[in-house]
Design a protein around this nucleic acid. Structure first.
Length: 484
RNA sequence: GGCGAAGUGGCCGAGUGGCUAGGCAGAGGUCUGCAAAACCUCGUACAGCGGUUCGAGUCCGCUCUUCGCCUCCA
């Protein structure tokens, strides 16, 4: 079997992955800022990293997966301008900021659960780790990497020579020349970023610190929580591409300036969801929330749609594209269902070659679209085998089902459970429905035996009108309940 | 202005120099009482212009276009 290679944003190369400690992987992914419902962009990010975790575990690694919740609002820039987004949403909804944070945290996990995203091992909140953040800031001040100015603490970018190496933005004069932020603050140098901000009157979320009452800067929370739970050097740090600069470059600077050790071994960045070619984002207002989307599409279809493109490629949203995914996924489930219901025969199928190809795809920087293409090739071969008179032997059928359950199911999370497949996707009340339909199918069978095809077709058409589709196969008649 | 990514058949979307990606939609066929499903066959795509090579969608250069980041953002 090939070995896992991961595209590392830091080296700009697909590097062979080996964890620092054999068998154990430490992984941190930037979580959401919880001031609104999650949208398709969040889904792409967290579904992608979910597959990363699932694949690492499949390979036998013990993964500790930490994903933070940013529940303290941050200003819209590193100068003293802008407003706190959580606080703004709180005044809009006339509730305490922490109510906003908690409500949207729940909303976030609800949506991720429905998408089949496994919960992180630890989901620490920024507000729960103020002392850890203060400790790092103190360390940075002691080492001369940070300074106080009017109750604000800033990181001195000049004091850290490698600043900007992740994004390639090492020339600070060039960075500032194109900037849109007005340079008017108490910073020593325009590129310096806030570690701690003094609370202005009216600011609600605030904590005491050695420098007075205030609140932490955005970048420091991730460094603090990652180091607390994963150590000073972690294996994998993931996040959205838009956070490469400044967020991740700042994280590197803080952490490495404080510890003197490399912070992250593998940086992974996922690409954006676009709408008509333009990034979907909260600030642009062109987003569609997952809760809206789930009204039209099964969450598993959304997950499948996301995994049909690579995590480092942008994914353009359109209803037509998701519909195409829906048809494809239904076809796959139909094949799996057929396999479960097949009667043992004597035929064989070379499952091993498909296993190898799928493993290769996932080992190649988690290439889910290629893995899915292999699964579809497998489905085709499987259907072909089931079409033949000799069918599949019990062993071959079991091996085929194991392949689907391992790769489509356990690793990619795009296969329904056996129970769901067997229930014909009937959903709630499935048992009653199945009983009723079996009676109707008996009657139709009688009609067909009498060659009363008018009656037989009428039954099929009437059921189809109610969303129940019948198929007459060699093994008898099967039915499926179609969604909306 | 700086840093970075990308332009693939009707649509979505892979592709790390040579052999079919895959899905959706479409056409023909097999099977079936019919239908559906399944299977078989079919489209001769790689923004443009040069270059390297026996051979390039895949490498190099230039041009055009699009997008992301440089402000909170997955």
């Amino acid at each position: 079997m090939s070995s896992l290679h991961i595209y590392n944003s830091l080296t700009r190369n697909k590097d062979l992955f080996e964890p620092l400690m054999p068998g154990v992987v430490s992984m941190y992914v930037c979580g959401p800022t919880v001031y609104g419902h999650s949208h398709l962009g969040h889904a792409k990010s967290y579904v992608s990293f979910d597959v990363v975790v699932r694949w690492l575990r499949h390979l036998g690694f013990k993964v500790r997966y930490v994903q933070n919740i940013t529940d303290v609002g941050h200003l819209t820039d590193d100068a003293d301008e802008g407003e706190d987004k959580i606080q703004r949403q709180a005044s809009k909804e006339m509730v305490d900021p922490m109510e906003i944070a908690q409500a949207y945290t729940r909303s976030y996990f609800e949506d991720m659960d429905r998408l089949g995203v496994l919960r992180p091992n630890i989901a620490p909140t920024a507000t729960g780790h103020i002392p850890e953040q203060i400790a790092i800031i103190e360390r940075l001040i002691d080492k001369g990497h940070a300074y106080e100015s009017n109750g604000n603490i800033y990181f001195s970018v000049e004091s850290f020579p490698g600043y900007g190496k992740l994004s390639g933005r090492t020339d600070q004069a060039a960075v500032q020349s194109g900037g849109r932020v007005e340079q008017r603050s108490d910073k020593r140098s325009p590129s310096d970023f806030a570690l701690w901000k003094r609370a202005e009157p009216g600011h609600i979320m605030k904590w005491p610190s050695p420098w007075g009452v205030g609140y932490p800067g955005w970048h420091v929370e991730c460094s603090a929580m990652a180091m607390k739970y994963l150590g000073e050097t972690i294996d994998i740090h993931g996040g959205g591409m838009e956070n490469k600069f400044p967020h991740h470059d700042c994280e590197i600077a803080q952490a490495e300036a404080a510890t003197g050790k490399p912070f992250v071994r593998f940086w992974m960045h996922n690409n954006m969801v676009t709408v008509d070619g333009v990034k979907m984002g909260k600030s642009l207002g062109n987003f569609i929330t997952l809760k809206e989307l789930f009204g039209t599409f099964d969450p598993m279809v959304i997950r499948f749609f996301i995994l049909q493109s690579h995590y480092r490629s942008p994914l353009d949203f359109s209803n037509a594209a998701i519909k195409a995914s829906q048809s494809g996924l239904e076809k796959l489930h139909e094949t799996a269902r057929r396999l479960l219901e097949t009667r043992p025969g004597s035929g064989t199928l070379d499952v091993g070659s498909f296993v190898r190809k799928t493993e290769e795809a996932l080992n190649d920087d988690f290439n889910t679209p290629v893995a899915i293409s292999v699964i579809f090739e497998f489905a085709k071969a499987l259907n072909g085998a089931l079409d033949r008179n000799e069918g599949l032997s019990a062993d071959a059928a079991a091996e085929a089902m194991a392949y689907l359950e391992t790769f489509a199911g356990k690793v990619l999370g795009i296969l329904r459970s056996r129970e769901e497949l067997e229930a014909g996707e009937a959903g709630d009340g499935g048992e009653t429905l199945a009983d009723v339909i079996s009676v109707v199918l008996e009657l139709r069978k009688d009609a067909r035996a009498r060659k009363d095809f008018a009656m037989s077709d009428a039954i099929r058409d009437l059921l189809l009108a109610k969303g129940i589709e019948l198929k007459d196969t060699r093994e008898g008649t099967t039915w499926t309940k179609k969604r909306g």
